[in-house]
Design a protein around this nucleic acid. Structure first.
Length: 582
RNA sequence: GCGCCCGUAGCUCAGUAGGAUAGAGCGUCGGAUUCCUAAUCCGAAGGCCACAGGUUCGAAUCCUGUCGGGCGCACCA
């Protein structure tokens, strides 16, 4: 399916010939040999560095090997030309047929184009967007959400069995505050004069109906009741309400998690003890005193003995506390239990998508996973840099107190999920992303997502016109088209680009960089638009040629292939292809 | 002070696991629409890839150091 796999096979075969001829020694390591598209199209369809890699071990000059390799490749099927180039590349040009037969490949594969089994069905757990249930999602959360979702799709496409997972942080002190906020609203709902919301409580509109419902259901029975009697129940009602909101926000982005795990259930279910026992048996837990932290001085710091995890045994900088001075497990202890739980559910590959402000957390968690799984499982952490929210070129500071929270829902309602998702993927995850509310709204026509969707829509338009002229446009007609009629360099370049999709998918998945899909689609759309406009200047390049049904069929097949790749790529990043713009 | 991330065109950013003459969008300037959607296309200008060393056939990419920016640095999540 991937043309460059075919080309790699050609090069490997040619190298085998050279070995048989004694030009190259046997048993060379070919791992570093690459066959990739050259940056400069004038160098042909592909270039290999084989001669440069193998020269030293062979004790020969790179150019000599390259020359021999070029001769061997000249004899390979579908090779039009193979030439050695300084300092030792071999440039390959393929016959037209090599590229033309990608068109039926693409048409046959449809939305599955680019799929591979490189993952071998391995189970991967992708945890992303585990925002605290203490408020609606904001724009910063959404970056990790879009990234995690697109990465999951990408990994599925290359043959991993992916589980999208959300960790609900419903076990900490913040939930108690949430519960007290409910209690305050509850007394308010009963008509009591409760005064303004105390400092530190959550001024969330979502909590009011929750409190009102309790008031209707239970009357005043909790008003004077001691906190222990209602704290947990109120907290859980609040969490459920917030999670409904969060799930709704995510659904508006087209994101659906497979599994929601509760921190509270881990804590109460004895799983923390189980995980720590596992560490204890390896001698990785001890009672100790940590040195004073280096950074800002902490006023009430005093050296106290704590239960510690020996994270330094696995590369962390210091050992990490498991228990707080009040006796409760730390967040880290619960998270250890959570990741142990993932391991026990069969995940040896875990990916956590976190905000960059959690960067300091990575080493200890990776240490924990290695220890808990006894080196069987591996945790990768993808950090998403924070979103710099701008408002017409001015930085926008978000402040819960001032009520200036830009919620995800507000933005998505305004610009739509497709624009939002695409923008989130037009930056590498570890680079800061500038998100200007004004620009995104006002200049949405300049947004790259429209550029790509427009290409898709234009192709749909061609098919509508073709059908209107009575031209057969169904799959059988397209598959039967004589593609040899396609000969213009612009057409072949377009097919080459479309056929590059499987390679991009593979690389994006390996590098875990879904943004590469977005950039690829932009390029493909650009080549298509260029060809379209050329048809305005050169009549003979128009897609529908009234007097030549064979040529028209070939061009329609080509367009169908391009549209298929556009749709497949957009699907991977969760953006809708459209039939027409409006 | 320590750790992680970033530094590429005026601006926002790519740069295909080290490849050949570093790219795109926006902005600026100049062109293209009887004709499949101009939400498009073509061209021009614009660069000491932060800086200095190193590794090698080859470095924006890897290593070391410096400068600049972001994030983090017991018992929060």
């Amino acid at each position: 399916m991937n043309p460059f796999d075919d080309l790699s096979a050609l090069v490997t075969a040619a190298l085998g010939q050279l070995q048989a001829q004694g030009v190259l020694p046997e048993g060379q390591d070919l791992a570093r040999v690459q066959v990739e598209p050259p940056r400069d199209a004038a160098h042909g369809d592909a270039a290999t560095n084989a001669a440069l890699i193998l020269a030293k071990a062979a004790g020969a000059k790179p150019m000599d090997i390259a020359a021999a390799l070029a001769v061997a490749l000249e004899g390979a099927p579908e090779v039009d030309a193979a030439v050695a180039a300084a300092p030792g590349f071999v440039n390959l040009s393929m016959r037209r047929s090599f590229w033309l037969r990608r068109v039926p490949d693409i048409l046959a594969a449809g939305a599955l184009y680019g799929r591979s089994d490189q993952g071998g069905g391995q189970k991967v757990n992708v945890e992303f967007c585990s925002a605290n249930p203490t408020g609606p999602l904001h724009v910063g959360h959404a970056r990790g959400a879009v990234f995690g979702d697109a990465l999951s799709s990408l990994l599925q496409h290359v043959g991993y069995e992916v589980t999208r997972e959300y960790y609900i942080n419903d076990g900490g002190a913040q939930i108690d505050t949430l519960a007290r906020t409910i209690h305050h609203r509850y007394r308010e709902a009963l008509g009591m004069d409760v005064g303004p919301l105390p400092a530190g409580y959550y001024p969330l509109a979502e909590l009011v109906p929750v409190a009102e419902a309790i008031a209707r259901r239970d009357g005043d029975r909790w008003v004077m009741a001691p906190e222990e009697e209602w704290l947990e129940a109120f907290g859980q009602e609040a969490v459920q309400a917030m999670m409904r909101r969060i799930k709704g926000d995510l659904a508006a982005l087209g994101i659906h998690h497979d599994v929601f795990s509760s921190e509270r259930r881990l804590r109460s279910g004895g799983e923390v003890d189980a995980a720590l026992a596992r560490l204890d048996e390896q001698g990785l837990i001890y009672e100790g005193v940590l040195p004073a932290p280096k950074g800002k001085p902490i006023e009430d710091w005093e050296p106290t003995p704590q239960l510690l995890f020996r994270a330094t045994a696995y590369g962390d900088d210091i050992d990490r506390p498991l228990k707080r001075s009040n006796g409760a497990w730390t967040y880290f202890a619960a998270d250890l239990a959570y990741h142990f739980d993932k391991y026990e559910r069969g995940f040896n590959a875990m990916i956590d998508v976190l905000g960059a402000d959690h960067g300091g957390y990575v080493k200890r968690m990776q240490a924990g996973v290695r220890a808990l799984s006894k080196e069987e499982a591996r945790l990768d952490v993808m950090l998403c840099q924070l979103v710099k929210l701008m408002d017409g070129g001015q930085p926008l500071k978000m402040s819960k107190r001032a009520g200036r929270i830009v919620t995800l829902k507000d933005v998505v309602d305004e610009v739509g999920k497709d624009v939002f998702r695409f923008i989130m993927l037009t930056r590498k995850n570890d680079a800061a992303l500038e998100f200007d509310l004004v620009k995104v709204k006002e200049q949405s026509k300049d947004n790259p997502v429209f550029y790509v969707q427009y290409a898709h829509a234009r192709i749909s338009s061609v098919f509508r016109n073709a059908a209107g002229e009575g031209i057969e446009t169904g799959p059988p007609a397209l598959m039967a088209a004589d593609l040899d009629r396609l000969s213009d360099p612009l057409e072949l370049a377009l097919i080459r680009q479309a056929a590059g999709f499987p390679r991009i998918v593979t690389q994006a998945a390996e590098a875990r960089e879904p943004h590469r899909i977005a950039f690829f689609l932009h390029e493909l759309a650009g080549q298509f638009h260029a060809l379209w406009t050329t048809g305005k200047e050169r009549q003979e390049l128009r897609f529908i040629v009234a007097e030549d049904a064979g040529l028209t069929a070939a061009r329609l097949a080509m367009l169908a292939a391009v549209q298929t790749v556009l749709a497949a790529g957009l699907k991977l990043i969760g953006v809708e292809p459209v039939e027409e713009m409006h």
